[in-house]
Computed example of a mutant assay.
Amino acid sequence: MESENQTGMTIFHFHPFTNLPEMRPLIFGAFLILYLLSLLGNSTIIFIVYSMRSLHTPMYFFLANLAVLEIAYSCTIAPLTLANVASVRKVSISLVGCGTQLFFFTLLGGSDCVLLAIMAYDRYVAICHPLNYTVVMNWRVCVRLVAGTLIMSCFFGFQLSMLIQTLPFCGNNGNSEINNFFCDFPAVMELACGDTHIHQTALFITSVIVLTVPFLLICISYAFIVTAILRIRSVAGRQRAFSTCSSHLMVVLLQYGCGSLIYLRPSSSYSPEEGRVVSVVYTFITPVLNPLIYSIRNKELKDALRCTLRRRVISQRK
């Protein structure tokens, strides 16, 4: 591989989505639309939560932070991917640049997963302990939970970013192409020509902490939530409680399902083709679906959106 060029830098190229020139504009257009929809949808949620005082609650505070993470997450992956699809020549990236992208990908993706667990705990307290909700989930606790999530994910991102710099890459053996559209750790590790046992172990431990532990906490939270909801005598009360949780569960299944397929499987069974397909789902499609799921399933958010649009229409008429 082009492990060393004239400047002594390790250079990679990304695998093209297609070798058919006529397909490139279609793929580019589809990815660009998904990217813009992600920015628009998540920005709308942030704006609504910020502008409506009725939504200044811990639940929507976490939702707005999730939207911020989704925007940053999309901006980490999409621009370079779009450049790779649009370019006739293969887009290259240095090992340092690859590590930088991996750092932000891990930071934002890991924070996303942990924040979903925090949101599940928030729903648990709201439904199972409503009288103590304002005491348990006060603003100081909410801010500390988000800050702790970012710090923890930053640590894992830095760790993986440093580990990728120590992968044993060989000389020019023709394997300089990353079989993905971004610097995902399993895809880059496929290019190594030496022992990667330490790297595989570090990736597995990070994946367990970021994916498995939060998912178990979510399952435990929802076990208590479902038990509490079934005790509600009012049908309308049960429906309202389920509606506030169903959107969160749909996002959880998307996020953790895709992540588990890539990072919680043995490296020997890693499939680059399957990895690219699943990566498209959680890097382009999921950031678009998250705001749609929350806005469609959440009555308060829909009412706030209608109110905001109505105000804008009235202000423009004046």
Rank of each mutant, 00 (worst) to 15 (best):
A117H: 07
F185E: 02
L150V: 04
N179H: 08
P186I: 07
A147R: 05
M162P: 01
V141M: 07
V210P: 00
F204I: 13
A147E: 10
L131V: 08
I220P: 02
T212D: 06
A192H: 00
L160Y: 06
E190L: 15
C128Y: 07
A223I: 11
Q165D: 12
V143P: 01
L191K: 02
L216F: 06
V226S: 11
D195T: 06
P214D: 10
M162E: 13
D195L: 12
C219A: 10
F185D: 04
M119R: 01
V135L: 13
C128Q: 07
I198Y: 07
L131H: 11
D195K: 01
A202P: 00
F224C: 11
V210N: 01
T134K: 09
L150T: 01
T134E: 15
P186M: 07
I151A: 11
C219P: 04
C219L: 12
T201Q: 07
L145M: 11
H197N: 05
I229T: 10
R140L: 12
T149S: 14
F181Y: 10
F155L: 12
I118G: 00
I198F: 11
F224V: 05
T196K: 00
F169N: 11
A192I: 08
L203E: 09
A228I: 14
Q165E: 14
V226K: 03
R140M: 04
C142Q: 05
N172H: 12
C154T: 09
L167A: 15
M189D: 02
D184I: 11
H199M: 15
A187K: 04
C142V: 08
C128A: 14
V226Q: 07
D195A: 13
Y133F: 15
C113W: 05
V208A: 15
F224H: 07
S207N: 03
D122H: 12
V125Y: 11
T149N: 05
I127H: 04
F181K: 01
F185C: 01
N173W: 11
L203F: 12
W139K: 03
N179M: 09
D112V: 03
S153M: 05
F169R: 00
T149E: 06
N175E: 14
A147P: 01
N175P: 01
H129L: 15
I127D: 06
N180V: 05
P168Y: 10
I198P: 02
V125D: 02
D112S: 06
V141I: 09
S221I: 03
I127F: 08
F204S: 15
M152F: 13
I205C: 14
Q165M: 13
L230E: 08
F215D: 05
C170S: 15
T206F: 08
G110P: 02
C193G: 10
T227V: 10
T227G: 15
L203R: 02
F224A: 15
C113L: 13
Y124K: 00
A202I: 10
N138D: 12
L191M: 10
N172Q: 12
C183Y: 03
L211W: 00
S111M: 10
F224S: 12
D184K: 00
L145W: 12
C193A: 14
C193E: 14
C219N: 08
F215I: 03
T166K: 04
A117S: 10
F155M: 13
M152H: 04
S111D: 06
S221C: 10
T227L: 13
C154F: 08
Q165R: 04
G110E: 09
I118H: 09
C154N: 01
F215K: 00
